[in-house]
Write a protein that binds this DNA or RNA. Sequence first.
DNA 1: CGGCTTTTTCTCATAGTTAGAAAAAGCACC
DNA 2: GGTGCTTTTTCTAACTATGAGAAAAAGCCG
Lengths: 302, 302
Amino acid sequence: MTGMPIDIAVALDAVVAAVSDDEPRVLVRSPGEHLPADALPAGTFDPDADATLDAGLRRWVTEQAQLDLGHLEQLYTFGDRGRDGRRRVLSVAYLAFVRESTPRAPRVRWHPWYRYFPWEDWRDGRPAIVEDAIFPAVEAWVAAATDPQARHDRQRRTRRAIGTRRAPWNEELVLERYELFWEIGLVAESRAPGPMLLGERMAFDHRRILATALGRVRGALRYRPLVFELLAPDFTLPELQQTVEALAGRRLHAPNFRRLVEDAGLVEPTGAARQTAGRPAKLLRYRPDAIAERPDAGIGFR
Amino acid sequence: MTGMPIDIAVALDAVVAAVSDDEPRVLVRSPGEHLPADALPAGTFDPDADATLDAGLRRWVTEQAQLDLGHLEQLYTFGDRGRDGRRRVLSVAYLAFVRESTPRAPRVRWHPWYRYFPWEDWRDGRPAIVEDAIFPAVEAWVAAATDPQARHDRQRRTRRAIGTRRAPWNEELVLERYELFWEIGLVAESRAPGPMLLGERMAFDHRRILATALGRVRGALRYRPLVFELLAPDFTLPELQQTVEALAGRRLHAPNFRRLVEDAGLVEPTGAARQTAGRPAKLLRYRPDAIAERPDAGIGFR
DNA sequence: CGGCTTTTTCTCATAGTTAGAAAAAGCACC
DNA sequence: GGTGCTTTTTCTAACTATGAGAAAAAGCCG
């Protein structure tokens, strides 16, 4: 408003997600010359070339991955890394969904999302890593606090992020967990990484961005019809359910899931059916009018 | 990633909210030399002066309004106005809550939020402006679409944003409504404003930012204990309810509200009571531990 | 003490959720 | 062409939450 204008380099980072073979995947650039580890598709925002942020992002993704994005949604703007010696001081992260494995450029691949966050996939029950590695490490960290106030704070933060051994684990708090692990030194990106490192590392702060994205996806799933962008135009109810389960990271009760989706008026039968090993599943299609009728329509599972 | 670095001016905009006398208020700079209308506190982000975005924002707010902010939350990054002749091409908006009328600098004042959005306050039933002005104008706009496809799209968008004459109005879709009105020319900030203008105007795109904020607040109220930052440390249940009602823009059922808050374990009695014209109200205080016990604790009214 | 106001407690009908059982519809194999 | 296997789909019963109203409780004012 006042004073000299100060100009800053602005980066755009893309989290491009798909689900195939019941596995959520994310588009990453493989390590290479200037990349110490997997990185998200990204580029610099140039207002002379692109009128809007998402136009710029689309151009970078097209360039780096030969991929056209559909719906795009802003995730977060990260600005606290001006001091790390790199010129870039601001980065705006976006989230996009695409259908399945689409064309791919050379140094880009689809990588299973949970490789970066093995503790987030509870579809086959609680992952061993939680009991074996995470709980002990975090408990040790809590116990290591010297003064009682600090210990209480750590206790509280822990309870929120990962619950207790028997108490609930909130699947939406992906970012809180990652940041906790970062602070304790449980991930390779930490300022002071410890001896035990969880999940695969990424370049820069990209794993943090990815954690933000997963949390956002899990929250949005409930009250917005996001999943349908990941599916082919025709799909069966079990396919829909498995896609939701893949992202939510846990199993759902099939009869209840069906009722939820049907009562929301989100889908309509195409008339056809898909053969399976058992009873054939009816094919469905998404009904976009649902969103106008009930603006909060989503798959409100819990 | 590749090519020459391109630098951009980044602005920080602050939506600072408070509730006093049952009226949500927002901190604005009054019109003046370079300001055609009310504007949000704002300034340029300078990474050399401030390590993080929110540090920069805090500094600007302190400077312009002599006010210290508590909890700060990122709202959105607006980037699509590079072509309007002004140098600033990116702005990161933040949302903050403060308790009540705190100190004020000269050209800054607390202004009732609903003056900018008179159609959003349904506490005394549906505002006359909705029936008298908004419905007719929007219906005319839908009818004015020439080809059927466009009319159908407008119909759908309208249904989502403002419902129908008898059907539900979703109080969270503040931004969708503002953007609809902007497009139709119902607000002074529109590219082509019509003869009838709704609400008070603001400078730049600040009313859009404010709409984003109100929508976010209304959504977050349900599942996060935000309100407590607006209240004095001790408060009564009716005070809490009225504050929530002020933000939500509608009335709630007192007995049910009480049950909700108490069952969530969000508050505890202080032991004291506040005199009123009727039965004295018990004083309460917020119980921060609630958030650790139930990470999604909020006032889950609907 | 009786009337007034406001807070607080109670109650009840309705709606939504969880969890399990079981029926239905195909295939494969004898 | 039946029998068993798998998977989808329908049904049902218990439980929990929500919406709306009645009424009790606790103060003040005259």
